[in-house]
Design a protein around this nucleic acid. Structure first.
Lengths: 192, 192, 192, 192
DNA sequence: AAATAACCGAGACGGTACGTCCCGTCTTCGC
DNA sequence: GCGAAGACGGGACGTACCGTCTCGGTTATTT
């Protein structure tokens, strides 16, 4: 398997290409040229630009300390607001956005990639959020977490409505209200 | 602009190609060949396969009676359940899914296409749903409608979790509960 | 089929490449680049570098007036000497040799090319020589012509022995002697 | 230099590849794989597929008893006919032809290979034939031997005319006639 | 017998060329 | 005079070999 130096050269190349020239400019030949690597070396380790892109994202995420840090201050509202703000910041960060959209686009056509994406990035991240709800004794924490996260992705993926501070506040408030009503009744809750 | 017969031949060609051979097989040359039309004719009316695909989807949607029929029986829960089931059925219909995913993927890279998509397909559909909530005197009907729709798209786009009947029921119940609490208080509601 | 200007650009390119850089440097990509032509254009009209090379040689030969000029002064010895000297000059001309060797090498591996080569270049040339012998009333002119030509090619192809003036003279003398003995007896011969 | 077992494995590999898959299929990588040898081992001992091919042919020829056996029954005509028939059989033997053509093709492009080929295979073989003519007291035995051999190679290399029994007979007869006239006059000849 | 070197298999690597597909433009020719 | 048919320059695809270059794991001495 690929030498470590090769992998990192390739990762750097694909990230810079995706960032500066957009999605369509990410080609196997372009990556090879930018990384100073032969095409065969790419094909030995990856089977598509999507794989490389995903691998690069994953490596970066691992380097960056790995798991998503879900804040847990005891105040659910504040924590969710911070979380939402962070997610939005990451999704709309000009340095990342094109890259993330590229991967999302590839997911639509490549089932294998979608599987890896789900298992390695989506599930861990979502689990962390679910745990935060569970710690707040929310019933059906999976579903509530999804309800919290989905509108953010929806707006981003379908560009249906722009993000704004007011909406984040209102959204968090709605989710918290829902969570309270869904909280297991009769049990002392760690937080109010 | 293209002759009507040309447009329909092209629409038929692109739909059949997308359906039978997958996303990658939709090329300008392929469409031209399948439609019995010259490439120049395609380029005169469209600028990418995404445009053609989108145009075809739009035409089909118009032919099919146009707007999404949001049920309005007076029973919000039943109506939402029917609506959700219908959306899920359309999104996962093997005859359409590849096509819809193809367009979604193109949206990530093509801002102009994303704009047209939002204005011509997304907004009308979403408005109809918002209207349904408004008719039920739900406060912030836009946000609630989004909260209703987003998890469905989220599951479909990121393939995060499969669809199942039980989830639909629970999801609708959660949305309705939220809507009730958000309903403008003090006004007689058409439904309970 | 290819535009005439394309053909001539390609011919010029392949001839110059073969001349200056040797046999191995003649590649489809190289020809395309040198000719300012796309690879697809080459593949539309030819299936190998050998075909292009052969086509170029043929075109050049046609442009140059076509058929081999076999001298016919009435003096068989002198004519044969001139013919042999001309053939040797052409085969060893530094401007052509690599090119001719390239084609000869390709003939060994490509039956179709060998057929075309034989029919379009070899047979006409050989026929002209046979005719010269026939006009001298030589019996079995085909075989004698072959006996005349073969050693020249043999030395060239297998590099068995170098060419020199003395050998040419001796060779021609031997062939003429053989031809005289083989001449149809009892008939007045045009030449002695 | 390579271990003897390696050499023979490589020879076997290259011969079988050339035989079964044709000239183009003989590659360094293919030979290494077939022989169960690393590429580096090949490059340590040879510099091209042509070298290996030639080396294999040479080894085979040495194994087979080495020199060409030129028949010497005392009857020049019969001996030459046998010799010609043998050469033609070898050249057109389906088991060898592709291989021999491959080497001949390589000779056109590789001067060093051509030198080795001439010295190690061609000269010894040709000398044996020259000796046969010399024993028959033929004058200029080199040239006559060449005249005898050249048409056979000519027909084979340029595929100019097919081999047939009648031609062999006529060819031998012509050569013998020429040889008689060229025989040193006034000396008793060992044969008539 | 253990130490030491030479050799070898395996195969990653930067490259070049292959032959194909599709891009978007431009030209030709028939209805 | 419009439009199909398709040639054209170009760029990327994925593959096959090239010749070079480490790697370990034998072999075969050499001590």
């Amino acid at each position: 398997m690929a030498r470590e130096s090769t992998r990192s050269k390739v990762h750097a190349a694909v990230l810079s290409l995706a960032h500066e020239s957009g999605l369509g400019a990410v080609t196997m030949e372009g990556i090879a040229a930018r990384a100073g690597v032969s095409k065969q070396t790419l094909y030995r380790s990856w089977d598509s630009t999507g794989s490389i892109l995903f691998d690069a994202l994953l490596a970066r995420s691992v380097d960056a300390g790995g798991e998503v840090a879900v804040p847990d201050s005891g105040d659910l509202s504040n924590d969710l607001r911070a979380l939402a703000t962070g997610m939005i910041a990451e999704l709309t960060d000009p340095a990342h956005e094109r890259l993330l959209r590229a991967v999302t686009a590839e997911l639509q056509a490549d089932d294998g990639l979608a599987d890896r994406f789900r298992e390695l990035l989506l599930v861990p991240q979502q689990s962390a959020i679910v745990d935060r709800f569970r710690r707040a004794d929310v019933a059906a924490p999976d579903d509530v977490a999804e309800l919290f996260v989905a509108p953010i992705f929806h707006r981003w993926l379908l560009r249906s409505r722009p993000f704004c501070e007011a909406w984040v506040t209102a959204h968090v408030e709605r989710i918290v209200r829902l969570a309270e009503h869904a909280a297991t009744p009769g049990l002392p809750r760690r937080e109010g």
